[in-house]
Amino acid sequence: MTALTPRSRPRRGAGRRSTPVRLAGLALGVALVTGLAGSAQALWSDQAELTGQLNQGLVGFAVTRQDQATAVAVEDKAVAEQESDALTLTLNQDDLETLAHSGQLAIGFDVWLRADGAAGLDYSIAVPSLSTDTITSTFTGLIMGPAQVNIFPVDSPASCTLDQRPTDPVGLSGIEGLPATYAPVKTAVQSWCLTATRSTGGDPSGNQSVYSTTVSARGTDTYGFPASSEQTDDSKWWVNLIDGDIPWGPAWQLTVTHQLTP
């Protein structure tokens, strides 16, 4: 330590070195320290990079209503964030009213897929099963309960029409979206069509009823005596198809799930 002490320590008031000289001295000291420490450490540790960057591929699964390719706004979109997510495509009030009034409905939707690397991706589409209680006591059930539903692949959502319905039902479980063969990036968009038809008259079972042209009503009058009425030329008839107080009921929605393979 003694040897490292400056031999000519500046005396107060006289013989002091100029500022630039001191700066140079300080810099030299720092450089000397750095050099010593660097060479000492280098001797006893060595390392090498074994690999370059490592990449993991992406997975994507989504369902959209309408056709993005034709720049139509997506009305409904569901995106999976994990494999256990169940995506849904829900019929809204307009859909059900369209079916109630016209007796038919056709909705196109897209299934968007991505599975990079060696992963494949399958998916399944499930149609809801309505309980008897739902069918008889809710708006959704009254409309969809008797409806005939078909789901089938189409070229694009825009070509989803009733006349495209296949003769035989299409399997909706374990649909292959992307194969489990290696490629750095694998994507696909598969289009589907949901159609529903129902009779515009009749009971909730969907059967067309036969109405008679004559009718009579019997009951008890306000005095407690039996009373009856018969059809006359002035008779007026109306019917409430659906009670205004009937509950909306559970949403009618397709459930779309996926599985990574193999």
Partner: peptide
């Protein structure tokens, strides 16, 4: 069908999937 390589660069080009 398994992918292989003999350089760090080829490993960097490989895209791994979950699993």
């Amino acid at each position: 069908e398994r992918q292989t390589g003999a350089s760090p660069d080829s490993l960097a080009d490989f895209v791994a999937a979950a699993g």
